[in-house]
Computed example of a mutant assay.
Amino acid sequence: MGNRLERLTGYDRITVTPVTPTIGAEVSGVRVGDLDSETFDEVFAAWMDWKVLVFRDQDITVADHIAFSRHFSELEAHPFSPYLDGHPEVIVLESTPGEPFAAEIFHSDVTYRLCPPMGAVLRCRVIPPVGGDTIWADMEAALEGLDPETRALIDDRRAVHTVTKNVLNIKEKAERAEELRAEYPDREHPIVRTHPVTGRKCLYVNESFTLRVAGLDDDDSDALLRRLWRQALNPLYQVRVKWRPDTVIMWDNRCTQHYVVPDFFSSHRRMERTTLIGTEVK
């Protein structure tokens, strides 16, 4: 934590204001639609330090959103989510009173892939008058918070991630389960992941997509996963962000999980997201 706090005096072009000691910071002094190379370097460093960056008052276009995202990586199309007309790289996450929707389980995005996303950039388009916050969990801190016995148990183990765990309760996707498993076969990833940039380690299992621990029987696997999933629920490892108009938030999908507070279903909420292509999990 000390190293991250020391970084606060190392920026010339942006101002970084932490929201918690280990995860989440508000960044000011930058317009995400107009990023030169020097400012990008500072934003990238802040992203690696704080995992979740919040940019307020960003009156930008769809083209700005895409261009900002492409500073960090090429963009991918989500396999299931609807996308913006003419822009398959921009998915639409929308909830209305008639069709309520929220990602109500802590998760990292699409970990059933060989190369799950590096991160995402989420742009607020319509917010409820109250509610609809998003919570991110710092899975590096969550790993550090484990007792020594559990840590020793997981250090060299792998877990199986599957596309169908999170979708089988949805009728049309349940009917396509066999097809989905063929298109997106189960993947094993290390339970303790090493970040490819920072070298820091994090807990890399999530309730949405992690099916079982390789090499354990079902009962032991289920018990261990429940213990590990609970780490994301600890407020000590979380940052909760309240959305405002023209807010843009980016997060590192490799070392965080996120959850939308489902307290807004009587109102309209709409977000637009780009997803940054990642690399194989190590």
Rank of each mutant, 00 (worst) to 15 (best):
E149C: 05
E149W: 12
T150F: 10
R151E: 12
D155C: 11
D156P: 00
A159Q: 09
V160H: 04
K165D: 08
K165C: 04
V167N: 00
V167L: 09
L168D: 07
E172I: 15
K173Y: 15
R176P: 02
A177E: 13
A177V: 10
E179V: 04
E179R: 06
E179S: 09
E179F: 09
E179I: 07
L180G: 00
R181F: 00
A182H: 03
A182Y: 01
A182N: 00
P185W: 00
P185C: 01
R187C: 10
H189V: 11
H189R: 04
P190F: 13
I191Q: 12
T194S: 07
P196L: 02
V197R: 11
V197D: 13
R200P: 07
C202W: 00
L203G: 07
V205K: 14
N206I: 05
N206G: 11
E207Y: 00
S208F: 07
S208I: 03
T210M: 08
R212S: 14
V213T: 02
V213P: 02
A214H: 12
L216Y: 01
D217I: 08
D217K: 14
D219C: 03
D220E: 11
D220H: 05
S221G: 02
S221E: 02
S221F: 02
S221T: 08
D222W: 07
A223S: 10
A223E: 05
L224E: 03
L225N: 00
R226G: 02
R226L: 02
R227S: 04
W229S: 01
R230M: 11
R230G: 09
R230D: 12
A232V: 06
L233I: 06
N234M: 11
L236N: 15
Y237D: 12
Y237V: 15
Q238F: 08
Q238M: 09
V241Q: 13
V241M: 10
V241Y: 04
K242M: 10
K242T: 15
W243C: 13
R244W: 10
R244F: 06
P245Q: 14
P245K: 13
V248G: 01
M250S: 14
M250F: 12
M250A: 12
D252E: 03
N253W: 02
R254E: 10
T256R: 09
Q257D: 04
Q257E: 12
Q257F: 06
H258L: 03
H258W: 05
V260W: 00
V260L: 01
F264W: 06
S266Q: 08
S266A: 15
H268Q: 14
R269S: 11
M271W: 02
M271S: 11
E272V: 11
E272A: 05
T274Y: 00
L276S: 02
I277G: 10
I277S: 13
G278H: 13
E280L: 06
V281I: 14
V281F: 15
V281T: 12
V281A: 08
K282C: 04
